[in-house]
Simulated assay, not measured.
Amino acid sequence: MPDSVRLTRLTLADFRNYASVSMSIGARLVALTGDNGAGKTNLLEAVSLLTPGRGLRRAAFAEIVRKVAAGIVSDSDHAARPAPSGWSVSVLLEGPGGETRIGTGYAPETGGRRVRIDGADARTADELSDYLRVLWLVPAMDGLFTGPAGERRRFLDRLVLAVDPGHGRRVADFDKAMRQRNRLLEDGGEAAWLDAVEAQIASLGTAMAFARRETVSLLSGLIEEHASDDAFPRAALALEGPFEDLAAATPAADLEDAFADLLKRMRPRDRAAGRTLEGPHRTDLAVTHLAKAMPAGLASTGEQKALLIGLVLAHAELTGRVCGLTPVLLLDEVAAHLDPGRRAALFARLDLLGGQVFMTGTDTTLFQALPADAQRFAVSEGTVRAID
């Protein structure tokens, strides 16, 4: 069983619509209710920023700073101060090593984002993964199966990142090397320079592909374990695209060389196109509704939502198994479009996962089926209040 990790306090300053707020959290299942625009999703976003990356909204850090219309903040003692230029998020968490304080924030005057762990500056945000894994499901993902391949690829890489923290750096380095190759092709760069950058792309791209393939394989196996759960339909997962065809036809030990050779042969075509046309950056995640043997994108809206929830729940379980730490799961408006039976099934499955879950909704009745020990908060403009 994975070790339990849960947040016991969440503190924000100058974050979105919150000047300052501190929440004491005493449960694994937490429901946040309030009107649209009250700031429920902002609280989830704050928690999502305690992982590498830009969080569930993928917002630029400067956009998160609390906006003050007049440019001046009036404090309760009537003193005036300039509008905030940065924000901060910190949590106390209980984990296998005891209590840890982790935080992150943005301050343009000190060079952008900072991460601190127990009061000490972290070298990179990647260190957060040693203490906390955060997963999420938000309404923007509802069109995942019908939207562009790039969205599914980004979703896939988040799945991989949760179980393999090094994947984020590989993807970033791969993208950087791809941009270098594209510039060299455009500028008529020397063959020796292209050989070098293509060797780097082939190495990183092959590692990315293997990590994706491993995660999809593990996730597929775990989904099969829940074959008897009919509340959320099972999904079949596959990786598709020309690069995946190359990988399937090539021994694993030879894939890196085969990819490098393909890049070399594709130079004239890529130069004409102004971009690299083939590689793992074009891979798509294909999802099939198993019971109906149809692509997920052709299923009904309700079936797509249920498929996505089932996939996220399976991934949360996989993350706990692989990493040895229960993840924190953020579910934004997840219950609003579920019938009462499926809603109750969701809450029961979340309870069994053993990790901490934060859920949002506009109506307290959505969470009536939560266990008695769940915690509820009322969210209004810039404030959070525990509900007895």
Results as ranks from 00 to 15, higher is better:
G354E: 05
V73N: 03
L156D: 01
R58H: 14
P52G: 09
S90D: 15
S129M: 15
H167E: 01
E224Y: 01
Q304V: 06
T110N: 12
D261S: 15
A59M: 11
G320Y: 01
A335Q: 01
D351V: 06
R234F: 00
Q356T: 07
R183W: 11
E198R: 10
A348I: 00
T360N: 10
A140L: 07
L298N: 12
R169L: 13
F347S: 01
L262F: 09
R183V: 14
A59D: 15
G26Y: 01
T283A: 13
A211M: 05
D173P: 00
P340H: 04
A249D: 14
R321I: 00
T250Q: 08
S24Y: 00
S228E: 14
V357R: 00
D173A: 15
V115A: 02
L298T: 14
R169V: 13
S217C: 05
E109C: 02
T301C: 03
E198N: 13
I201A: 09
F377M: 00
W136G: 08
V357Y: 03
V91E: 07
A247C: 09
R234H: 10
D175K: 05
D75L: 15
R9F: 00
D195T: 08
L346N: 02
N36V: 03
A192H: 09
L184C: 11
P371Y: 09
G37I: 05
T250W: 08
R133L: 02
D254Y: 03
V134M: 09
M23V: 15
I25R: 02
L285T: 03
L329V: 13
D195A: 14
G37K: 06
L325G: 04
S76T: 12
A19G: 13
E127Q: 14
A38T: 10
P2C: 06
I102M: 05
G166K: 07
A125R: 05
L237S: 02
F15P: 04
L318Q: 01
V89T: 08
T250D: 09
R181G: 12
P82W: 08
E94M: 11
D230R: 14
F61I: 00
E198A: 07
E224Q: 12
P251A: 11
D284H: 04
L346V: 06
A199K: 11
I64S: 05
R57S: 04
A249V: 00
N36R: 04
N17E: 02
T104L: 07
E381K: 13
H78A: 15
I387Q: 13
G55Q: 11
V91S: 04
R269E: 14
S20Y: 12
A191L: 14
Q180D: 05
D195E: 15
T124M: 06
G205C: 08
N36K: 04
D270G: 02
S76D: 15
T326N: 11
R179D: 10
D257Y: 04
T365H: 14
F15N: 05
P340E: 10
A80L: 15
I309V: 11
A238G: 14
V65K: 05
A125W: 05
L50V: 08
P268Y: 08
E94T: 12
N182C: 12
G119D: 09
D142P: 01
G279R: 04
L353P: 01
A345P: 03
T146A: 12
G39M: 08
L56N: 12
R66T: 08
L144M: 01
L93C: 08
V197G: 07
A192E: 15
D130S: 14
V65C: 04
R234C: 00
L194G: 10
